[in-house]
């Protein structure tokens, strides 16, 4: 045991210098970047938004701890990745959600999607998104009940959807092919930007999410490639599929509506479930954009979560296709090398 500590000379393979920046530091940055969105969520939906997020974080950390304990693995609650999953899952749920439902979502995200496949770094789907999709499959009425934003309509901590005043979201109008300020929700464009609309806790305020995203980019936690490719593709396709009269406004509604900002900035940039090659990231973003618009325009559903999950599954394939050329290797030989590698 620890023989090497007594030796005067150690011989070890590189790398020799470690960095203090680990999973925990990155996850802490992501949590900090999510604070503005949470603040806006609390501002529009009241203290229940905070309570729901706290329950979700606690649930994720407890499930992770219990699973690691049950399987006698070293605990991994300290790296905060479960906390990020908890926050993102709560952000992707309406504020009126009963607490027990979000705990089921936490269980599915942490135990089934993440830990059963080996824990952080080995899950093939984004846990928070998979949890959200599972909840919308199993508890659809609760997942699609949108409470009106504003102090007057705040829910008490123990109240659920039946006690609140519900409203239509801009996405409902979008699916009907009308601009929100002409449709049933009556929402204006600046409301959509600030977040004064019905929707999930963390997705409503594009402004706060953009702040958080900018923080992550400046801190070097995420690259701009995926969000830029994702949002750019959605913008182009939204322009192409818009009704003839108001194409540019239609593009803005598509960009600001639904979970697109939250998905593009925080969920599609998950390290584990996205490609790690630069061109792979770009293709990943483009694929997400195409699927999102396709599902929104032709499927009549908010497609962000499904789009990102589908592209998560494609991530290994994209990595394989976009493997960078080895430095100094001749250009034409790449395909042969890959074939040789495959046979081994």
């Amino acid at each position: 045991m620890k023989e090497y500590q007594d030796r005067k000379l150690t011989v070890a393979p590189s790398p020799h210098i470690g960095s203090p920046v680990g999973t925990r530091a990155f996850m802490l940055d992501v949590l900090i970047a999510l604070v503005p969105a949470l603040a806006m969520g609390i501002f529009f939906f009241g203290p229940r938004a905070l309570a729901l997020t706290a329950v979700s974080v606690l649930g994720c950390e407890v499930f992770e701890g219990l699973y690691r304990l049950a399987l006698k693995k070293p605990g991994s609650g300290g790296d905060l990745s479960a906390a990020v999953t908890g926050v993102l899952l709560a952000f992707a749920c309406p504020v009126s959600m009963p607490y027990w439902i979000i705990l089921i979502g936490d269980f599915f995200a942490i135990v089934v999607v993440k830990q059963l496949f080996g824990g952080l770094g080995k899950n093939f789907l984004n846990p928070a998104l998979a949890g959200r999709v599972f909840l919308s499959l199993c508890y659809l009425p609760e997942m699609t009940l949108w409470i009106r934003p504003g102090t007057k309509f705040w829910l008490g901590l123990a109240q659920t959807g039946a006690d609140g005043v519900s409203t239509a979201t801009p996405m409902a109008d979008l699916h009907n092919g009308v601009l929100p300020w002409m449709g049933t929700s009556g929402v204006r464009l600046h409301d959509m930007f600030y977040g004064n609309i019905g929707g999930c806790i963390g997705e409503v305020s594009a402004l706060a999410l953009l702040f958080g995203g900018a923080y992550l980019v400046l801190r070097g936690v995420i690259h701009l490639r995926i969000p830029a490719a994702y949002l750019g593709t959605v913008a182009v396709l939204a322009y192409a599929t818009a009704p003839l009269t108001a194409a540019s406004q239609w593009v803005l509604v598509q960009l600001l509506g639904g979970g697109l900002m939250l998905g593009a900035l925080f969920m599609a940039t998950d390290y584990v479930t996205t490609p790690c090659t630069p061109w792979g990231e770009v293709l990943f973003g483009i694929g997400c954009g195409i699927l999102t618009v396709f599902l929104r325009v032709f499927g009549g559903v908010e497609g962000v979560s499904y789009a990102i999950l589908l592209m998560n599954v494609c991530a290994p394939l994209l990595e394989k296709f976009t493997r960078p050329r080895r430095y100094g290797a001749p250009k034409g030989r790449r395909k042969k090398e890959e074939k040789g590698g495959g046979e081994k």
Binding site: I104, L137, Y139, L140
Partner: peptide, 11 residues
Amino acid sequence: QYAALGLNGPV
């Protein structure tokens, strides 16, 4: 009302 209805489908 507490049952996870999605489990009755192919998923």
